[in-house]
Design a binder for these strands. Structure first.
Length: 503
RNA sequence: GGCGCCAUCGUCUAUCGGCUAGGACACGUGGUUCUCAUCCACGUAAGAGGGGUUCGACUCCCCUUGGCGCUACCA
């Protein structure tokens, strides 16, 4: 009854949901960007709408070669795929699709220009001839006298004809919004409800720079309108400029979209997530071997959750449950340990075939024996957090000989003679076993446990030497599994090595 | 400085006025066990402070404090 979102949320009747992720191509896809993209995508899919990728490259000084391709690849790797806008074809070329193009902002410059001129014409914007120098001095003065630093409206009063003349004379200029000087404006946000701002405190924003390019404020707003964007879901850093955007919609008599400003992702010290403190690039996480599904799951739950006690969600489940109004207002600290845990969950529960296919590249160079490699991978599955851990966990499998100086072959206070005696017995048991193609861990266990019982030995004084003989490690998978994984021949070679090292 | 946003375990969060404040990660203890890991069980741990409103506030309102964002011809 008193839910403010019932105003018109989630979508007005018959309205087509169209949302966009609009990054600027300054390098790589930021993990926070991935979350923004995901929330947009989830919202769109949930409401059977469109998810558009638009590239905001109006700042030519910040453009990075290859960044667009990079962005697309990271999104695709994570399965957050736009159905409209910029995409990469099979050869990796940047392409565009949809009837609302172009989707690369720099290609829309003429439209932006026309909109800006229109705003000037209807008295909602004006040409400003103030030099950088003047603006600097102004700012310094304001700072010195403790006043808010903002444009003083110096060129607001320049008559149209004079402005035309000065432009004709080649004088440099920008176009600024002619914002109201009094009253207030209220932005309605799906996550934060109503937020009010005093017009008097908002700067006359530059919408066309002296290089003729539009700024974000004009370009994004006009493009959102042209592309019939219904909901603008973006980072919280845009909240303070939302009134300017609203002003443009109203100036043109356009119906504004609904806004949802997402909370920021934070470093562990609660500052805005930065490169300085760990990885922020999606590609870096992927390179480290984190699974896209895990990363997506992780990022989705940073600032939102479906309020059950479930932790692991598929993309489909996220889509079905996603509710933009349930997104948290507070920023969220990135907790890599939880990502590790999630990743491990995925590694353990995915189909075995998929697991092996995924992991194979990490051991492929170490052996030609594919079946042996698979057995090794299966054996370490429970001890894996990320694929890159594979190396550390498997190297001993593929060594010709193990270095037994690193871990004692003797258990606790056991004598070398006794350890050797046990290993010789084990060698005899295993060599008498019927191998087939591989040994079976259960059979080995039964045979060895029988012998232990028969002789009155202890588990520790038999199994420890065996396990270390096979692994060369203090910590490793169990001895029976190791023997089975090696196969009869290799297992016996290892035992032989260990026995001679005890002689 | 100005404007805005925010505030539950160390971290991510549940709670839409009734709470013995729930879950997950991390951490600790115990069990299984030759080791480690897995797995299972258990445990430590939170409503920033102060005022209201109310029979009743973690939940609503105000103030304070703290954190963050914006304050560019960057997005």
């Amino acid at each position: 009854m008193d839910n403010p979102f019932q105003k018109t949320y989630p979508t007005e009747a018959m309205e087509r949901v169209r949302v966009r992720f609009a990054p600027s191509p300054t390098g790589f896809l930021h993990i926070g960007g991935l979350r923004s993209a995901l929330y947009n995508e989830l919202f769109a899919r949930h409401h059977q709408g469109d998810f558009i990728l638009r590239i905001e490259d109006t700042d030519r000084t910040r453009f990075v070669e290859g960044a667009v391709e990079n962005l697309c690849r990271s999104l695709e790797a994570c399965g957050v795929i736009p159905n409209e806008g910029v995409w990469l074809d099979k050869k990796g070329n940047v392409m565009q699709r949809g009837d609302h193009g172009p989707y690369i902002q720099s290609e829309r410059q003429e439209k932006h220009r026309a909109y800006a001129d229109e705003l000037v014409k209807i008295g909602k914007a004006y040409h400003c001839f103030c030099t950088q120098k003047r603006l600097e001095t102004l700012r310094e003065e304001q700072q010195a006298s403790g006043k808010p630093t903002m444009y003083d409206g110096h060129c607001r009063a320049v008559p149209h004809e004079e402005a035309e003349g000065r432009i004709k004379n080649g004088e440099g200029y920008v176009i600024r919004l002619k914002l109201p000087k009094q009253g207030s404006v209220t932005v309605w946000d799906l996550i934060r409800d109503d937020i009010s701002f005093e017009w008097a405190l908002i700067d006359d924003q530059v919408i066309i720079k002296s290089d003729g390019f539009p700024t974000y404020h004009l370009a994004a707003t006009c493009d959102d309108h042209d592309m019939e964007i219904s909901h603008v879901i973006r980072g919280e850093e845009w909240l303070p400029s939302a009134p300017k955007h609203l002003f443009i919609y109203e100036a043109f008599g356009w119906k504004p979209p609904k806004f949802a400003h997402l909370p920021l992702l934070l470093n562990s010290d609660r500052s805005k997530l930065s490169k300085r403190q760990g990885d922020v690039a999606v590609e870096d996480y992927l390179k480290k071997g984190y699974l896209p599904e895990a990363l997506l799951n992780f990022v989705a739950l940073l600032g939102w959750n479906p309020s059950g006690e479930k932790e692991v969600y598929t993309h489909e489940e996220l889509t079905a449950q996603f509710d933009i109004t349930k997104v948290n207002k507070a920023g969220a600290v990135l907790n890599v340990e939880k990502l590790d845990w999630l990743n491990a969950q995925y590694l353990r529960t995915m189909p075995t075939e998929k697991y092996l296919t995924l992991m194979h590249p990490f051991v492929a160079e170490k052996t030609d024996d594919g079946s042996f490699a698979d057995r090794c991978l299966l054996l370490i599955r429970d001890r894996l957090t990320k694929p890159q851990d594979v190396d550390e966990l498997t190297t001993f499998f593929f060594r010709d000989h193990l270095d037994y100086s690193k871990a004692p072959l003797t258990w606790k206070t056991q004598s070398r003679e006794e350890a050797k005696e046990r290993l010789e017995a084990l060698r005899e048991i295993i060599s008498s076993m019927n191998e087939g193609t591989t040994l079976n861990a259960m059979e080995i266990e039964t045979a060895i446990k029988n012998r232990i019982a028969e002789k009155g030995w202890g588990n520790g004084d038999t199994l420890w030497p065996m396990r270390v003989a096979l692994s060369g490690q203090e910590k490793s998978p169990g001895p029976f599994e190791l023997a089975a994984t090696y196969g009869k021949k290799r297992a016996l070679e290892r035992l032989e090595d260990a026995i001679s090292s005890l002689s």
